[in-house]
């Protein structure tokens, strides 16, 4: 299961394809890799498909937007070939169509990779793994975790701030000027409270003997084992394989150039 893969390794295994796919401008390569990601997602995790679809739909819209824009506005390097259809003042050629679909697919790939990562990774473990595998200084690791802890608090805090304003007799703002004023009345105290909390929580941490020293023990040991490397090899291996196959079949295009 992917949820038990070491988070740092997982992150690198997600990043490398994300970066390398940026090179391709053909349809075949990202499509094949996209299919591979879907296969991995639905065989090696237990994410319910409807939940996945719901979370994935924004990426789909985003990808469509990108694809559409690229089709309509591709420059000369990318827009060779015959005109396929035209719309109002735009004409879409085979080249720009292909580029558009490719760009769209590529962002789908990255969306699917991101989603796979987010849905199988525990936040605290990720930070602990950064500290233990990537030697992220404990000061930063725990500093980040301390800030992250305030997320649920903020919502509560906003509610209380609203109540406080009511209690003190401030009526709901009307009009643009009132709204702007209201924004200031809320945003500044919320941020100020956050900063105050930052100060207090760091005092609390230091009062528990935290020094930022890298020499500390780890209750939750994050280890890297053979299976983590296997997962890494799978993700990267298949990527290279897809590139090779695409080259072999003559589809591969890197920036406007066919290989």
């Amino acid at each position: 299961m992917i949820s038990s893969i070491n988070p740092s390794i997982k992150m690198v295994a997600v990043f490398i394809p994300g970066i390398l796919l940026g090179l391709t401008y053909d349809v075949f390569t990202p499509l094949l890799y996209f299919i591979f990601i879907l296969t991995v997602t639905f065989t090696m995790t237990d994410i319910p498909i409807f939940r996945w679809l719901k979370l994935f739909s924004p990426f789909l819209i985003l990808a469509l937007g990108f694809a559409w824009m690229t089709m309509l506005y591709a420059n000369q390097t990318f827009s060779g070939g015959d005109e396929i259809f035209s719309l109002w003042v735009f004409e879409v050629t085979a080249g720009s169509f292909q580029t558009g679909v490719s760009v769209g697919l590529r962002s789908l790939c990255f969306g699917a990779l991101s989603l796979m990562f987010i849905l199988t990774t525990d936040s605290t473990k990720l930070m602990l793994s950064f500290m233990q595998q990537f030697r992220l200084p404990p000061k930063i690791t725990y500093g980040i975790l301390a800030g992250y802890r305030f997320l649920p608090v903020f919502q509560h805090e906003l509610q209380i701030l609203k109540q406080a304003h009511r209690i003190r007799g401030v009526v709901r703002a009307r009009g643009i000027k009132g709204r702007l004023n209201q924004f200031r009345r809320y945003a500044i105290p919320l941020l100020a409270n956050g900063i105050r909390k930052a100060e207090r929580v760091s005092i609390a941490m230091e009062s528990k003997g935290f020094t930022g020293d890298t020499d500390r023990t780890h209750y939750h040991r994050m280890t890297v084992e053979k299976r983590d490397w296997l997962f890494f090899a799978l993700m990267i291996g298949v990527l290279l394989g897809v590139f090779a196959l695409s080259y072999y079949l003559g589809y591969l295009r890197i920036f406007g150039r066919q290989f």
Binding site: L145, V201, I203, A204, M205, K208, G209, T217, H218, Y219
Partner: peptide
Amino acid sequence: ESQFCMITVEDELAFTLENRKVPA
């Protein structure tokens, strides 16, 4: 409210022990 820096009770307590380098 100003006393804590972790989310769960266990992590909070473990944090202190890790600072003291108590074996995992």
